[in-house]
Design a protein around this nucleic acid. Structure first.
Lengths: 335, 335
DNA sequence: AAAGCATGAGAAACCGTTTTCCCAATGGGC
DNA sequence: GCCCATTGGGAAAACGGTTTCTCATGCTTT
């Protein structure tokens, strides 16, 4: 009895049970080779009854495809990364591809450890993602023998990268303020050193210019990504004359601070001032008073597309290199 | 030249370059077998120069150990799960173990798909984690041929599970209020249907009883896990006479609502009322005014320990079954 | 000088699949 | 009745390692 094996049942067991060779069994199960329909059906039935599942390791060894990819991230907090990761996982499992989670802090040694482990385990490709679009991971992936896709992050110039279309999102936000009849707009955002700040600021200026206005530097306030900065910005704006009637915030936390500060000043939102955020961080956006109108970066979809792009690369299909910008969506709530 | 192979270099290449058999090469690299120290050193040097890295797939096929585990989660939002995941990843990479990320929504089919994929890929074990401690995943893991560890979640009675010690954390929180001289305490928490609510409430009552008080039902307010509920609770409490001077909140969002409402009422925190939260969700806790004193569940450490427990199980060591409670830490800030 | 023994290294089996031949039997065409 | 094509199925190599034997060599022992 081969059933004394403690291990899982193999194709040998199936072959034996069906009284055929393992070659025939393999061919029956993979719908290749030539044999009578009866034989094929019988082998399949036996395999089914035994609950046979082929060992992916053995298969990969031969095919040089592990149907496994690595996901490298330096984001342990995960507000942005987790939706991306979920999207990747979702988009790939349909292709039978599994995802190795590699949480590297900002530690180069840890990163190398993970990359080596992945290569040893023969991953077909790697997706790199991180906390910050413009800050590279502490490891160079550009000379690896497998394809790389950057998600929510840009890599070398000729690499495939997917990021949200910050400009379009910001434009939509500003245009929404225009639609509400707001004309005295300001942009309260994060540190100027961030790429996304640059992008959103650029779009802010652009949208104003398109509307026939000449944006001034005083309309753009950079600070921290925090509620506190949002509150401070309101103090500053309302301490000078002619405060704005529309505020586009660089993220939802700032917007939260802005809204709280306005509330404390008895400035009505959205009656006197309209506020738009960025990120659609629901747990914040839904709990502001009023609920925050904000820009959603569709991160899950971004993850899904990153997964698909990587699969195409692995399959040897050509994917246009460079940075692809995925559309953002304005989520209109009460502010 | 065998270097015309597009693939990575194998032990065959090393053996050829060192003019030995692959058996000898293998033994040299694994520090097994017998050979002269010179031979061993030479083979190692050659391997080093060639940048040889053994194919983990081939190795696993033989050893029946893939050094890979699965991580099943139904949490796509990730406030709690992500630190756990990071801890798991960190704790396992040191053992050479990689982690498959499996994001199953609450979808049984998706869950099954992932579990099957993992089994096919010969994972050594699975860690199950999720959004809610008392809500099982939509898939039964109890009859799998590999060990399972539940993290931030409980499984079947005889399963190995790790959860935070909610009672101890809550007790510490209440005792902190006592230390601050507060005596009129209330507990504002989430829906009574949650296990954690039950635990924390129990500890709240217990701590009061230990201090010689007789807790009344009026001191326990259950509602939603939201800022809004925190604000409502304050309205309710301050509309009746003799409002509390210490509030222990079931999570940080509620605490945030409570603090905001008190602020709007011009009730001083921490002068008139002390507030303690739960979760140490830093992005919230650090931005309240004043910063929130709250309970940290040490989730990363929990993840690390879950990883270690699984490794022990995989190694055949015995791990005491049942639910282990890991200590929480009170993080004292300004409230 | 014969026997015994430690040493160093290689041959081959094995893990679980897939795939490329190859072969025996059958049947049809002439 | 002979030849050839087709059909159904199997043997064996391959993937990249590890491990168990086996064996030749040279040294020590009596």
């Amino acid at each position: 009895m081969s059933s004394t094996n403690v291990g899982r049942i193999t194709i040998h067991d199936v072959a034996a049970a069906a009284s055929v060779s393992i070659a025939t069994a393999s061919k029956a199960l993979n719908d290749t080779g030539r044999m009578s329909v009866e034989t094929r059906a019988r082998i399949r039935r036996v395999a089914q009854e035994l609950g046979f599942r082929p060992n992916a390791l053995a298969r990969s060894l031969l095919s040089k495809r592990s149907f496994t990819v690595g996901l490298l991230t330096n984001d342990t907090y995960g507000r942005f990364t987790l939706p991306v990761m979920a999207g990747i996982s979702e988009g790939l499992i349909d292709h039978g591809v599994s995802v190795f989670l590699c949480a590297i802090e900002d530690n180069p040694d840890l990163a190398k450890l993970h990359v080596d482990a992945m290569l040893d385990k023969q991953v077909d490709g790697i997706i790199a993602t991180g906390r910050r679009i413009d800050k590279p991971l502490p490891v160079d992936l550009s000379h690896l023998p497998i394809p790389i896709v950057y998600a929510l992050m840009t890599g070398p110039a000729d690499a495939v990268a997917l990021v949200p279309d910050d400009r379009q999102g910001a434009r939509d936000a500003v245009n929404h303020l225009f639609d509400k009849g707001r004309r005295r707009l300001v942009h309260v955002t994060g540190p100027a050193s961030f790429k996304v700040v640059e992008e959103r600021t650029h779009a802010f200026r652009d949208a104003l210019a398109t509307a026939g206005m000449t944006p001034s530097e005083a309309q753009i306030l950079t600070g921290a990504w925090s509620e506190q900065w949002g509150r401070e910005a309101v103090e500053k704006l309302w301490s000078q004359e002619n405060p704005p009637d529309g505020i586009f915030c660089g993220n939802d936390q700032i917007a939260r601070g802005v809204i709280d500060a306005l509330r404390e000043k008895d400035v009505g939102v959205p009656n006197d001032v309209s506020v738009v955020g960025f990120d659609n961080w629901e747990i914040v956006a839904e709990q502001t008073r009023p609920p925050l109108t904000t820009v959603d970066m569709n991160l899950k979809e971004l993850g899904r597309q990153a997964g698909r792009a990587l699969v195409r690369l692995v399959n040897g299909e050509i994917v246009e290199p460079g940075v692809s910008k995925l559309p953002c969506t304005l989520v209109i709530r009460g502010s």
